[in-house]
Amino acid sequence: MKTVTPAAATGALLTVRGLEGWYGESHVLHGIDIDVRTGEVITLLGRNGAGKTTTLRAIIGILGKRAGSIVYDGVETIRMASRNIARLGIGYVPEERGIFASLTVHENLMLPPRVKPGGMSVAEIHTLFPNLKERAGSQGTKLSGGEQQMLAIGRILRTGAKLILLDEPTEGLAPVIVQQIGRTIQQLKAQGYTIILVEQNFRFAQTLADRHFVIEQGRVVDMIPNAELDANIDKLHAYLGV
């Protein structure tokens, strides 16, 4: 058994301890432990259904029922409503991207309220993703999959959130778009953002992350620093079943 450091003692930006989560009656998370330090990019790796997306949903507080401890920036959030968790400075980019069909691209971009000072200006976001500027008046869901992903990330960057939860941002996208998303994440990391990335493609994750948490059946079964990823490649293949 590994010993678990108490949440308060880690000095991390986000400390998750013994996180349990349910979808209705089914118990999905069985005690997740994760620390994320300020400015770090970590990934959650694991097979489909292991609990990666559920972990992100639990952190932002939109899972029906959760228990354990999630401390962000010194604040225990396990009993907080998701709107108050977001207001602490956590931005959520969901797997399905969550672009609103009844809003234009610009309205989608402007929708999430500013939660902290220091968010990007619209001009900066347009520099990062020029397509969003060209198509500002289009219906949000008329964008291509890659553009929708950029919009989903861009609108969070406006809010001043310092911790960004990115759920499979490259899923279903063309390689050239995947590269662009990868460069964006690197830029964000260089600007001091802290990022939790759920990713199926660990080759992509390897180019970005500091550490990788492997999740299996609702538990963290391993943590691999990025520098040791290649040395642990066989173990990882076994975890992921690839």
Partner: peptide, 24 residues
């Protein structure tokens, strides 16, 4: 209006709008 945009967005996906920090 912005208010209307919140209303339309919350009509589509209230959970996500809430996760952005809006008091749905």
């Amino acid at each position: 209006t912005k208010l209307g945009a919140y209303l339309r967005a919350a009509t589509e996906n209230p959970t996500l709008v809430q996760a952005f920090g809006v008091n749905v």
